[in-house]
C-alpha cells in the first residue's frame, strides 16, 4: 500500500487515476504508443503546473513580492531579484546588459559554491580518508593502496590521443577494464532498483487498486 491516498472520495479518485495512468504506461509494452504519449503529456503538464505554483507560492510571493511591499526601499537586492525574475520571463523591453548582471551573479555564485564544496567537502576529506590513516591495519592500508591504484589506472584509461609506450598503454587498458567492471556492477544495481520499482507498481495495482494483495 503506497499510502499516498486517503480513503475518502478524493483518495479513491486519485487511486483510480493513478491506476489508469499506470496501466497506460505499462500498455506501451504492447506497443500502445498513443495513450503512452498522452500520459507523457499529462506528466509534463502536471509538472509544469506544479513548478509554476511552487515558484509563485513558495518563492516569488513570500521571498520577493511581500518583502518589496514591506520594505522595498531598504533592500535594494530585492530589486535585483525582481529583475532576475523578469529576465527569466524574457521580458523583451528589459535591457540585456541589465538583465545579464543578476543572472551572471547567480551562475557565478552557484559555480563557486559547487567548486568550493567539492574541494572542501569531497576531495580533501576523501584524500585524507584514503591516504592518512593513523593506526590503520595492514588490510586497511592494502585496501587503500588498491583503491588508489585502481583510481590511477582508471584515470589513465581516459588518456587519449597522446603518444605513449607499452607500459602506459597496458595501464590504460587495465583502467578501461576496471571501468567496465565498475559500470557492470552499477548496472546490476540498476536492474535490481528498477525491478523493485516495477514490483511496487504491480503491488499498487493488485493492492491499492484491486485489493487483492495486502
Amino acid at each position: 500500500m503506497t499510502g499516498f491516498f486517503g480513503e475518502d472520495a478524493a483518495g479513491t479518485a486519485g487511486t483510480w487515476v493513478a491506476a489508469i495512468a499506470t496501466l497506460v504506461v505499462l500498455g506501451s509494452l504492447l506497443g500502445e504508443r498513443r495513450l503512452f504519449g498522452w500520459s507523457q503529456h499529462l506528466l509534463a503538464g502536471l509538472a509544469t503546473g506544479f513548478l509554476a505554483l511552487l515558484a509563485i507560492r513558495e518563492v516569488i510571493a513570500p521571498r520577493l513580492v511581500d518583502p518589496i511591499i514591506a520594505e522595498g526601499a531598504a533592500r535594494p537586492e530585492l530589486w535585483a531579484g525582481a529583475i532576475l525574475v523578469a529576465a527569466a520571463a524574457t521580458v523583451p523591453w528589459l535591457p540585456r546588459r541589465l538583465a545579464a548582471v543578476p543572472i551572471s551573479v547567480v551562475v557565478g555564485t552557484l559555480a563557486a559554491f559547487a567548486l568550493g564544496g567539492a574541494v572542501i567537502g569531497t576531495i580533501v576529506p576523501q584524500l585524507d580518508a584514503t591516504i592518512a590513516r593513523p593506526g590503520a591495519t595492514v588490510a586497511g592500508t592494502a585496501a587503500g593502496a588498491l583503491a588508489a591504484t585502481a583510481t590511477g589506472l582508471v584515470l589513465l584509461g581516459f588518456v587519449h590521443g597522446v603518444p605513449r609506450g607499452r607500459i602506459l598503454t597496458a595501464a590504460a587498458s587495465a583502467g578501461r577494464w576496471l571501468l567496465i567492471v565498475g559500470i557492470g556492477a552499477w548496472l546490476g544495481y540498476l536492474v535490481l532498483s528498477r525491478l523493485v520499482l516495477l514490483v511496487d507498481r504491480l503491488g499498487f495495482l493488485l493492492g491499492d487498486w484491486l485489493g487483492l494483495v495486502r
Binding site: G3, V191, L192, L195, L198, V199, L202, G203, G207
Partner: peptide, 17 residues
Amino acid sequence: EQTEVAVLPILIGLLVA
C-alpha cells in the same frame, strides 16, 4: 507501510535479466 516488498518477483526478474 504494512506491506513489505515482495522478494519472489524481484528474484524472478533478476533471473530473467
